[in-house]
Amino acid sequence: MPLLSPLEIDALLLSLRVAAVATVCSLPLGLAAAWLLARTRFPGKSLVDAAIHLPLVLPPVVVGYLLLVAMGRRGIIGAWLYDTFGISIAFTWKGAALAAAVMAFPLMVRAMRLSLEAVDQGLEAAARTLGAGRGRVFLTVTLPLMAPGILAGLVLAFARALGEFGATITFVSNIPGETRTLPLALYTLTQTPDGEAAAARLALLTIAIAVAALIASEWLARRLKARIGRAEGTRS
């Protein structure tokens, strides 16, 4: 008997894909938001800050509902997307990824913002006097010094995306093979008579993934810290 049943493998791969796409696609946006919050001043900044953090405090069902209203086939943005490009993300795994990304976004931005605030702007100024333009300074000084924070943000976001339930089931429903990620599959099994054993197996699987992700990120973080050295970079 194989280690995992085909259904379990389906749910696992779907979950990994949804979480990975959600995390990777929101990375540039997360960096931009972190920059906006840490380095710029503009009117209405506290509103933007609040909006980014909203998914952290709202019930996930509300986020899922708002996504449905906005991005559903007849939603405000969804209808335009469908009419213009023929794209529909409601009730697809892409919708699940969007829901996971929105829910994970505040955690990602928070970690990146903190690490950006810890970057010594004096080092950036020094780089500029050495002839580096803003772009080169960002790539060669700011980004490497932020790296541990970026990694932390990615890990947090990935973990949050992997566990996303409420917004997903509200926005894209619970379709086997399309939107039934590990948490949804686990939930389905608990609603099924005689599903306890299968549910327990899924729970163990989820725990195993979480532990593996933690160990991997810990190892990566240590390597990054070693690269940055124990000098100014660890002041934070």
Binding site: A126, R128, L145
Partner: peptide, 20 residues
């Protein structure tokens, strides 16, 4: 003129070497 185009070297009080 942007600092990177002024061609002035700058030695800071605290060195400001890139730690990475």
């Amino acid at each position: 003129v942007a600092p990177e185009r002024r061609r002035l070297g700058y030695v800071f009080q605290d060195g400001r070497l890139f730690p990475h």
